[in-house]
Structures are given as C-alpha cells and as structure tokens.
Write a protein that binds this DNA or RNA. Structure first.
Length: 888
RNA sequence: GCCCGAGUGGCGGAAUUGGUAGACGCGCAGGACUUAAAAUCCUGUUGCCUGUAAGGGCAGUAUCGGUUCGAUUCCGAUCUCGGGCACCA
C-alpha cells in the first residue's frame, strides 16, 4: 500500500474533530499542576478568495509549538476565530445587494474547512467571530468603558469618570463640557479624506488607490470619534522593554510613538491693535534660539486671522483656502517645493530680540506640537529651503566639532584673555580659520545646513557650549524668565475610531435633538445592526445606517425622549483589540472574560502573525489592554509576551503573489496533490520563519518524497504489512546515537524559540537517510521518530503510530527525552592547519589531550610537508576541533 | 531623506562562544531496475587549474580595508536589495 495522503489525512482530521482531541478543558477541569501555554495566531479576515499559502506558514509554526507543548505536558490554549467586519465584506454586500453577514458566513465555512484540511490542532469549541452579536456586545461594552473613563495624569492611569475632580469654578454646561473633554473616547471635528464622486470617506491607505482610478479626494472636516491613545504614549513606549519581541518591531513601535524631547518657547507678537499676544512653539533644539529668524504657522492656526495685516489679508486667505482643498497626501507629495505667504505680522525673538516675520506654510502641521514653529534656517533643512525661497535671514549658531579650536581660539585683547565668538573672529582672523569662515558663509548663503549637534556660536550666553549644555542652559534661562519650559512631544496621534460604514460595530450612543449625547447602559447591549436584506451608501459621507430610519430613530429608554442613534461604526481594528481574551472564556454572557480564567491563561505566551500588523494592530491592542488593566478587568499589563513575525511567501518568480501577475499558488491544489503534511513541512523547510522566501512547487514535491520514504520505512509498499526491517530488538549503538542526536537537535530548535524549523526537518531527513542504509530497524527507534515527526506532519505520524500497534492518539504522548552521553561521538574528525589553512583532516578518538592532538598533527605527512624548512612560531590546539601550526 | 533587516553554489538555505564554508532539500548529470516510461534506489554536483588515477594546488560567504594564529561570524567604509516612516519642528 502506497502513501495515500488524501485517505490518511481525511481519516485523522475526522478523528480529531469527532474525539475533540484538542479541546482545552474549562478552567475547573484543568490540571493546574501543569504549566500553561497560550499560543495565538493573528486571527484572519475570512476573504472570498480563501486561504492563500501565506496563512498556513504562521499557523503551521504555532501548531508545531502547540503540539510540542502538549507532548511536553503543558495545558495548551490554541484557538482560532474570524475578524469579519470590514470593507471587503461590505463591498461584496453592496455589489450583490445582500446583508454582509451572508458573504461572511460563506467565507467562514470555507476558511474553517481549509484550516481543518491542514490538520491544525485548534480547539474549535472556542471559535469566535467578531461580527457575532454575542461578541460585539463586548466590543461595545469596552467602548463604554473608554467613554466612561478619564486619564489621571498623576497616577498615570485610566480611572472611572465618576472619580474625575471637577474644578469648583465650573457651572452648568461647562461641567458637562469639561467631563466630555476628559473622556478616553471623545468626539471631535477632524479632517477626513472625502471623495465626492464615491460619496464616501476614505481611509488614508485607500486614498492612493482611488486617486489612481481618477477620483478626486479632498480634505473635509467631519465629526469623528477618537480614542485618547496619546495619553498612553509613554507607557506604550516604556513597556516595550518588558516584551520579548523582535527588536525591529519594537523599533517600529518606538518610531511610531515618536517621542521628542525639547522645549516650549513663548514668543511675543508685535501688536498691530494694542492687544498683547503670545505664541508658543515646540522645538527640539532650544539651543538654536539665537538663530531663529522667522516663524511659520500652520495654515489652520487660529491666531492667523487676528494678526494678519490688511495688505496681506487676501493673499493669506487664498493660501488657507488652497491648503484646505489639498489632501494630506497632496501636501506631502509637493513637499519638495516649499510654499507660503507672509502674514504681515512680526514676533520678537526673546533671546536675540530681533523681529521675526511670521509666515504661514503647509509644511507646518497643525496636528503636531503647537501648530507653529520658530525657524532656524541655518540648522534645519526645511527651514533653510523656505528661507532660501523667501530670501530670509540665516544666522549660523551651531558649528561642527572640527571647527571648535578655530572658532573659540583665545585671543589676547587689551583687557586680557577673552573668548571670541565666530562672528567677531571673522574680522580678526584669516588663513588658519578659512574653513570655519567658509562654513559660516555657506550657512548664511543657504548652501550648507548643519543639523547635527556641535558647539554654539553667535548665541550670547550659550556661545562656546556643546549642544547638550546649551539646551540645558537655554531651558533654565527660559524657565527663569517664565517664557518657556522643558517639554516632550509624541508623534502618536489620537486614534480616529469612527467609520462611515454599515459593516462594523455600532456605537452604543444616542443623540438628542439639542445635541446632547447619551451613552447607553451595559444592559442595553448589544446595539444590533439592523437586520436588513440590503442597503445603499449615502451621498453625504455619513454611514449607510443613517438611511435606515427604523433603526436610526429611537427613544431614550429611561425618559422616553426622542433620539437618533449614532450612525458611525467602529473601525475593523476594534474587534481584534481584545479577541485573545474572549478565547479564554468564549461563551460567558456575564462578562467578556472571567477574571480568574484570565489570570490563569494570560498573557499570551506566543503570538505569531504577519509584520503588516507590527504597528497598528499591536499598538491598539496593547492600548486597550492597558485600559482594561487600569480599570481592573485584567491582571496583566501587556497582552503578548513573545511575538514573532512570519515572513512573506513570494511567487515562484520571486515577486509578491498577485492575481494580475498570475503567480498565485492555491493551497487547496497543493494539499490535494501533495497532502497537508507535505504542505506543512515544506512551508517550514523553506527557511527561517521570519524570512521572505519564494514558493517552489518542486520543493514541496521533495517533502512529499521525504514523507513517502518515511512511510516505506514502516509499511511494505506491496503488501501493506509492516516493513519486515522493523524488529523488536533493542536499538544498536548507531541507532541510539542517531536517535538521541535527532531528539537533541529538534528539542533545542523548538526550545530556542528562533522558529528555525528548517534545520529540524533537515535532521529528520538525515535520520531517515541513515535508516535506509541499515538492515534492521528497532521498533522503539521508529516509534520515537514518529513522535518527533508528529508536530510537523501529524497525519502520517498518527497513522504509522497506529500501524505500529498503538490504539491511542500520540497527541499527548510524552516528547522523547535524549541522553547527552549517547549523542557524543567516539570518533571525531579534527582538522590540521598551517597558518590558518586546513591541510589535513583526521579521524581520532574524542576528548584527546592537547598534547596528543598536537602529536598527531606533527606526524601528518601533509603537515610535515608544509612546515618543512620553516620555523614553528606557535601551536594552537582547540580540543575536539583542530590544530593550527603557525610558521614563519 | 530617516529608521530597521538582509546580501553565502544554478536555486531555497546550513554553519554553538571567531575554529574543517556549502548540512538538508530542489535542480542537474551519470548509473541500477524496466521492452520502455513513471516511480524507486545508488553515485556525483562552489569555481578554476593540474593529474591516467588516487590525489594535489589556487580562489571563494556583495565590494574595499582593518583586528586575529585563524573572520560567513568582530570593527570601519562603500554598493545592492527588501521592509517601515516620511515636511513631526
């Protein structure tokens, strides 16, 4: 009987499902004396195309770990679910004129079938779907928690809104306004990408695609819900240290959060109308304040209308209008060429006391810092470009280290020794200081822009100091004068949390006619999506929900007052922010997850998914988890302890798989032709998990060949009986060494956590190749090998295990142990080299002394030849490895 | 532009702390079995030079340089590719 993968794989998949082999018992039935291991996959979006070959890559890795940990005696939690809200399902629904859940159901059935066909050991009793009412009820519940919480700056954590201290000075509506301004979920007017032709708002990522199709996209202000993730910026940054994540992912998150240390500086604006006005700016380089020669405001800055001069009014208004029409993307694309307009107003530099003209330009962003900057064109490239274009003054105030000695040479004057700054020096020195003078001249002429740290010049009381010293001294000076302070800025923005779509979680909020907003109570949840058979998009940019009157119009349950529902829905990220908690307690209708169960299973021990989620999903989930932690709903401050990113699988041509290229590999075809076990093994054999690597159909055939070889080792091809080579004898010494070496290698490969399964598979191939060379195989050796193989190729392992006479599944059979002594070779090959070049190799007894090895080297004919007539200077002996003779 | 990561045979990739470069697989070549083919099994496979042969020699881990008895591994510079961010003051 040949290796018939289709028959075997179906048999065992049915066995596992019917026997619930991989069901993780509920908490009270679990043996708590065993350690726990929570292995999580990033839950997939069940798209209409079905699985692609990239999915099984990460899933196979987690499955191998899960199966290994079970054999190691761990209580393993290994669940799967569906992240099914989102745009593709919505577009499918609009096209087919159906409710999106119709399409989602089909896709889920398809995905589940495909995953089961790969033999993954998920506990299907814990399957979740983010679009189930029982699930999104709790997503809404968490939104309410965010809405009803504020961030306490002193304690650096979220607290219930009832605990918020309200200033005594506030009365009536102002109290409500104050409370609303502190909530972690808040509504605000925000710019969005509006596409008039499509009548919809687009996410930033969708903009380029639509513009290529010829649609226009403009910026437009709309009321949007946001989550105050920025309050958690520092904690999200600090806690990265606790996590065993790849350094590059930590770096990506660090950059995304983007902490900048600097100062806030207050400038006086020269008054046109007698009113005293100040403007604050943020700078990371307070040491360059003496070099600030002009200011730039973002076009959206509120102060512009107050300070603009009559002559400039029209030009300024035109510029503001133009900037408003551009999308963020357009603003960025035109980045090379600076634009702007003079406002006619001036500010006073508090350090140099010069008048600084105030410009507006869209290179200054309203959303970062204070929306206004001090420009130091000598030491900031953008400022320099702008200064060049508008012919503004440039003062060099920082010099590179190399000019230090020239710039600050001590000059004897009539009054004794003094330090002269670069400015004074220019008049006095020549020759020796040419490089320095050239530098100053180039800066003034906007030919050079020195943005690094160095030494201050032309900077009054800062002159001569290093950049670090000057920063500190300037901040002190600003604080003493009450016109500035140390400040930290983050790049991270508050999370735009609303979408104008049908297919998402509705917000549990109602609006009254007078504009008041009321959050629903926990017992009112879930707010269900309307059960319509079809729907259309609105032309106003609002959610399709706004057109469904019987859903939209409602009354306040408590007062009977007329109200309308919030029509925005939550973004696709919402459901995936906490799904890992629901797996722990998927059927609970009292709470999203029982706290005792959470305490047992959390944090996730291993989390594997694609690096496309390195920033957003992982940051959002960490943020939600911290809020839940602050409010006392979870015991862990971070959700994912170890993270691993799988690499992308490219097409056979070495480029990204895409339908248009026609290089897409369908996993169904591969499973049918070669089998799930071959598929799993090949994806692991291709290379390290994190690497990007091209697919090879010839490669998967090779793994199928390997599994066939394993099959024939146990089963006689012609008779279907056991291979007569398999005997009940004790293993020979050779077999023992081979087996124990293999156990050792494979155990280490998994325990090291590098996810280099390719070398384990190579070791199994060596094992099988060796067994093909011997006359007899001890049955126990074969059994141990099947246990080693089982996490990788579970179907064939179970089948052969059974054929060797076992009646129980091997899924919970202990992983083989190895004996270190048995892995050691008695004979080893050592290399003899002369001057580092290997000249001879020799098989010797292991653990020879250095003297003995040395003697062998000198007795070797080839070594003798190479050292003949030369002086031996040194001999280096590395035990069990080599002897190197150094000659002259 | 900035921040990460990576460059090893025809290809995917191996190589504990610096210690025998190319494990394992694919592909290719040759052989066995077969009327033939497929499947299977065996052998070879970094390049160049040399030898009838066993063998021997030289070069070689993107490029150039450094440290070292010895470098794929450590250090410096450069080039190429991949990923992320992108006017963040």
């Amino acid at each position: 009987m040949k290796y018939e993968h289709l028959v075997i794989e179906k048999k065992w998949q049915d066995f596992w499902v019917n026997n619930k082999t991989f069901r993780t018992p509920d908490i009270d039935k679990i043996d708590k004396s065993k350690p726990k291991y929570y292995v999580l996959d990033m839950l997939p979006y069940p798209s209409g195309d079905g699985l692609h070959v990239g999915h099984p890559e990460g899933y196979t890795a987690t499955d191998i770990i899960s199966r290994y940990k079970r054999m190691r005696g761990y209580n393993v939690l290994h669940p799967m679910g569906w992240d099914a809200f989102g745009l593709p399902a919505e577009q499918f629904a609009l096209k087919k004129k159906v409710n999106p859940k119709v399409g989602v159901e089909e896709c889920v059935i398809r995905f589940r079938g495909q995953l089961q066909a790969l033999g993954f050991s998920y506990d299907w009793d814990r399957e979740i779907n983010t679009t189930d009412e029982d699930y999104y009820k709790w997503t809404q519940w968490m939104f309410l928690k965010l809405y009803n919480s504020y961030f306490d700056e002193k304690e650096n954590k979220a607290k219930p809104i009832e605990e918020l201290a309200i200033p005594d000075s506030l009365k009536g509506d102002d109290i409500t306004k104050f409370i609303d301004s502190q909530r972690l979920a808040f509504i605000s007017e925000s710019p969005v990408n509006w596409c008039p032709e499509l009548g919809t708002v687009l996410a930033n990522e969708e903009v380029p695609e639509q513009m290529e199709k010829g649609y226009t996209v403009v910026r437009r202000m709309m009321k949007q819900w946001k989550l105050r993730i920025t309050k958690y910026a520092q904690r999200l940054l600090d806690d990265l240290d606790k996590l065993e994540w790849p350094e590059n992912i930590k770096k990506l998150q660090t950059n995304w959060i983007g902490r900048s240390d600097g100062a806030i500086v207050k400038f006086k604006i020269k008054s046109n109308d007698g009113k005293g006005r100040d403007i604050e700016v943020f700078t990371t380089r307070p040491d360059t304040l003496f070099g600030a020669t002009y200011m730039v405001f973002a076009p959206e800055h509120k102060l512009i209308s107050e300070i603009v001069s009559d002559e400039q009014k029209e030009a300024v208004q035109n510029y503001i209008d133009e900037a408003a029409r551009k999308s963020d993307l357009e603003r960025a694309e035109l980045a090379k060429d600076k634009t702007g307009v003079f406002t006619g107003a001036y500010a006073i530099n508090p350090a140099s006391e010069i008048e600084m003209p105030i410009y507006i330009s869209d290179y200054v962003l309203m959303s970062y810092g204070t929306g206004a900057i001090m420009s130091v064109p000598g030491h900031d490239e953008r400022d320099m470009e702008f200064a060049k274009k508008f012919d503004l003054d440039i003062i060099p105030v920082v010099i590179p280290q190399k000019f230090k000695d020239v710039a600050f040479r001590k000059i004897k004057s009539d009054n004794g020794e003094i330090i002269i700054s670069g400015k004074g020096l220019e008049k006095i020195l020549n020759g020796a200081s040419k490089g320095f003078l050239n530098y100053c001249e180039e800066v003034r002429e906007a030919k050079t822009c020195f943005t690094e740290e160095g030494y201050s010049i032309n900077s009054g009381f800062l002159t001569g100091l290093t950049t670090a010293e000057a920063k500190a001294k300037m901040i002190k000076w600003l604080e003493d004068k009450g016109i500035g302070r140390r400040n930290i800025n983050y790049r991270l923005r508050d999370w735009l949390f609303s979408r104008q779509r049908f297919w998402g979680e509705p917000f549990p909020l109602i609006h009254f006619e007078d504009g008041r907003i009321k959050a629903l109570k926990e017992e009112d949840l879930p707010v269900r999506l309307p059960n319509v058979t079809s729907y259309t998009t609105s032309k106003t940019g609002e959610s399709p929900l706004s057109l469904i009157d019987e859903w939209l119009n409602t009354t306040d349950k408590e007062t009977g007052e007329k109200a309308t529902r919030e029509t925005n829905t939550m973004p696709q990220w919402a459901g995936s922010c906490w799904y890992y908690l629901r797996y722990i307690d998927p059927k609970n209708d009292k709470i999203f997850c029982d706290k005792e169960k959470e305490k047992y299973w959390m944090p996730v021990d291993l989390y594997i998914g694609g690096s496309e989620h390195a920033v957003l999903h992982l940051l959002y989930a960490r943020f939600w988890h911290k809020v839940l932690f602050d409010l006392g709903y979870v015991n862990s401050s971070e959700p994912f302890n170890i993270l691993f990113n799988q690499g992308m699988i490219l097409g056979e041509d070495g480029v990204k798989m895409s339908k248009s290229r026609g290089n897409v590999i369908n996993p169904d075809d591969m499973i049918k032709e070669f089998g799930a076990d071959s598929m799993r093994m090949f994806e692991m054999f291709m290379g390290p998990l994190e690497a990007t690597k091209p697919w090879s159909t010839e490669g998967i055939a090779g793994l199928h060949r390997f599994l066939s070889r394993v099959w024939r080792l146990v089963v006689d091809d012609r008779t279907g009986e056991l291979n007569p080579k398999i005997v009940s004898d004790d293993p020979t010494d050779e077999e023992k060494k081979l087996l124990h070496t293999t156990i050792k290698k494979m155990t280490h490969d998994i325990e090291d956590g590098d996810m280099k399964f390719n070398t384990s598979i190579a070791q199994m191939m060596i094992f099988v190749n060796e067994l093909y060379k011997v006359e007899k195989i001890s049955k126990s050796v074969m059994e141990n090998f099947l246990l080693l193989l089982s996490p990788y190729a579970p179907h064939i392992a179970e089948e052969l295990w059974q054929r060797l006479g076992h009646t129980e599944s091997l899924a919970y059979h202990p992983w083989p142990e190895y004996d270190e002594n048995l892995t050691k070779a008695e004979q080893i090959t050592v290399a003899f080299s002369v001057n580092g070049k290997v000249r001879a190799k020799m098989s010797v007894d292991a653990d020879l002394s250095e003297k003995e090895l040395e003697q062998f080297a000198f007795d070797d004919e080839s070594i003798k030849k190479h050292i003949a007539g030369k002086e031996v200077v040194r001999i280096i002996v590395v035990k069990n490895k080599m002897v190197n003779v150094v000659v002259k």
